[in-house]
């Protein structure tokens, strides 16, 4: 089965799980209705709860379901579907109050029914999860702290939701509904066990050692790891991995980075720019140090996009996965033509500039550097990756090529639009989101 068919299958299965509580209610024997708004509110509540339950699976990084989409897209979808859940979650109490405003009288601290308090607490937890995710940087919450808070609040929200649903009891006291909710909750529990226990145990049994740490231009570091008494991992050029340093895989301090090394090499390399809490300490890594790698992930790879040639577009450290593809092509003696657009602030900061020049000799590679702040007498492209830049360098020769774009989200959106306006089919433009959270 191809990636498209598999993608449709997993989308259909996911939709089925979310809608399953309503299918059961529509198909099975249920108690008499309580009024349109009241029943609509109950249905909205069930949908919100089902979406919340599926969040655990969406972020569990199950390799098979994630493969057709790429994990970056699954995480992006996770954020979108959370907004859909928020809509149903808000509709649930608002519809109830619209049906009977006197219900507000029941909301009194310490004297409300326990299931009502559980529902309100679940709602508060969910809102807290949303706000701390959407405004993580604005609230100045570190990535590692946020991940722990996110996991804790999510589990708490789900537990409180179950207490609320069971406490209310309406529409879940049939055998079929009880079975369904038991299955959904078991799924959540198994997912949590997989993520927090089985996967860390597996990573612990397959450690890596740091071979070298090399400073690159643009405040970036290339970290090379070697499998420690195991075969390592095989990956497609352009994929990425979750890396744990300085702690065990149980610590929830892993971070996603693109692999920048050749897929043909046994050692694996990450090129990491000093940007945040974790990355600013990367220069302190010592050779011989233990590391754990959860890989490979991502659908951004030439190996998944057979074509007569490629156009790569990189913004800043977005060059890392493209470098992996170029190095892999060089190792494979792949002479298909590649045109690389590489945008950076200054020439001095440009990561991999010398390595790229060296690769020109081993590949059919053309490079267009685009500098925001060019040096004096710079003859090349300047400013941003605009439509005119692409128009000057793309020709009929590039028809049928696949376009791979990696960099900041704003750059990706602008490049996609520019290429599309120049007549590049959207199906030929492939992107990788770097900002997962």
């Amino acid at each position: 089965m191809g990636f498209v068919a598999r993608g449709i299958f997993w989308c259909a299965l996911y939709t089925g799980v979310i809608l399953s509580p309503l299918f059961f209610l529509l198909a099975g024997p249920v108690p008499a209705g309580s009024g349109f708004l009241w029943d609509l509110s109950a249905a909205c509540g069930f949908i919100a709860a089902a979406i919340m339950a599926t969040m655990f699976a969406l972020t569990a990084r199950f390799k098979r379901p994630v493969a057709p989409f790429g994990i970056d897209l699954v995480y992006y979808f996770h954020r979108l579907i959370a907004l859909v859940a928020l809509f149903f979650l808000l509709a649930h109490p608002l519809l109830l109050l619209a049906a009977d405003p006197r219900l507000l009288l029941f909301v009194r601290p310490r004297s409300s029914p326990y299931h009502l308090e559980a529902g309100i607490a679940a709602f508060a937890c969910f809102i807290a999860v949303m706000l701390t995710s959407l405004w993580r940087r604005r609230l100045n919450i570190g990535y590692d702290t946020w991940r722990k808070l996110h996991a804790l609040l999510s589990v708490l929200a789900m537990v409180l939701t179950v207490v609320h649903i069971q406490g209310v009891g309406h529409y879940v006291d049939t055998a079929a509904s009880s079975l369904l909710w038991s299955a959904i909750l078991s799924g959540c529990l198994v997912t949590i066990l997989y993520v927090r226990l089985f996967k860390p145990l597996r990573l612990l049994a397959r450690p890596y050692r740091v071979v070298s740490i090399v400073g690159e231009a643009g405040r970036a570091w290339t970290l090379t790891l070697r499998p420690d008494r195991h075969a390592g991992v095989s990956f497609l050029p352009g994929q990425f991995a979750w890396l744990t340093l300085w702690s065990s895989p149980f610590s929830m301090t892993e971070h996603p980075f693109s692999l920048s090394s050749s897929a043909e090499s046994a050692d694996i390399g990450f090129t990491i720019k000093e940007l945040g809490d974790f990355t600013s300490g990367i220069s302190r890594v010592q050779p011989g140090q233990l590391a754990f790698v959860d890989a490979p992930y991502g659908a951004f790879s030439i190996d998944r996009l057979p074509a007569p040639g490629y156009v790569f577009v990189a913004g800043g450290i977005g060059i890392a996965p493209l470098m992996s593809m170029l190095r892999t092509m060089a190792d494979r003696r792949d002479r298909r033509p590649v045109l690389l657009f590489y945008a950076y602030n200054t020439r001095e900061e440009m990561t991999f500039r010398e390595q790229l020049e060296e690769l020109r000799g081993r590949l059919d590679l053309d490079i267009v550097y685009v500098l925001k702040r060019p040096p004096n007498r710079w003859q090349g492209e300047t400013g941003l990756l605009r439509e005119e830049v692409f128009r000057r360098h793309l020709s009929e020769m590039h028809d049928g090529f696949e376009f791979l774009v990696c960099g900041p989200v704003a750059m990706i959106a602008a490049v996609e639009q520019a290429l599309h306006r120049l007549g590049v089919p959207m199906r030929s433009i492939h992107t990788e989101l770097f900002e997962l959270v």
Partner: peptide, 30 residues
Amino acid sequence: MRLLLAKIVAAAIGAVALILAMLFAAVQNG
């Protein structure tokens, strides 16, 4: 393209869920 597709899928799931919820409420209340 991928981001747009993700948005379409999320919106479609929400729309179908809302329609089913309204259908359920309508069926329950004649």
